[in-house]
Amino acid sequence: MPPLTQITLADLKQQADRLPKMPEVALQLNRLLHNPKASAESIGNVLRLDSRMTAEVLRLCNSAAYGLKRRILTVKEAVAMLGTNAIVSMVYAILSKSTLDKPVKGYGLEAGQLFKSGLTGAVYAKHLAKKLKTPVDGELAFTGAILRDIGKLLLSDFVGEHYPVIEALAQRDGIGFADAEKAVLGLSHIEAGHYLAKLWELPDPLVKCVRYKNQPSALPKTDPFYRDTFPLVTSVHLADLFTKMAGVGIGVDGLMVVPDAAAVELLPVLLTETGADHIMADLLALQPAIDDLLDSITKATHGEGNP
């Protein structure tokens, strides 16, 4: 069927302009992280340009969620103690809070739910990243997962207007909600997210997480970093599925998603009769840690706690 409407790049730009501006420090960090060999020192130098971000990162480092035995006073110490990737994932978690915290009405999400879903998926992805046949960096999986649904910020108004048609098509044809969005609106929240990830100049692995989170097997095998990127995107895909199955921050798109068979094969335990139960049990046990992290990020971004 022809789309009922055709969302254009101009429409997406208009929606993106309504979002909080990406701070300069984040843009610089994004550019820096395009180089996989970026040094801890250079990352620390970028963070130091933004005293507010530095203070928020240090508050988070010193929060209960990280449970460090001594107080961290500088970014340099933080990088030395927790590692570069952990600090980078903290920065994205803090940045995501302000962007993802608002209501996303077209998807039936009240204020805070998209962020809660993002953060839960992020913790799940970090856990799953270590369980895959080809393990990947957990911090990168965390960051990819927290950003995975940014496209919903751009498509919310359009989905709200056309929801009954999108939903009916997904149910009738047994296709994912995102595929039904594409059929009805001309593009999906996946493509909208891809647009936003490029606009924000996110590092390539994170752009891929957003672009292929619903279907890792669509990642071109010609991708020069395929061997690392496929498991990374798979960890985000599986985390997204389990977050939905746990009902965290779930919206009107519900569980209208088709798991990717190739991704499932990367976590062979899922192919056993009760393998999904074992994974779900392990992920549900992470809930207290997720609650602590959510609380710590909220306090850090509200200026509570010691920087």
Partner: peptide, 17 residues
């Protein structure tokens, strides 16, 4: 008891619901 669509030719390993 909700659950995702089946996949991979009717694979239903995620049928926890």
């Amino acid at each position: 008891g909700a659950q995702p669509f089946t996949f991979g030719g009717g694979n239903n390993t995620l049928n926890i619901g």
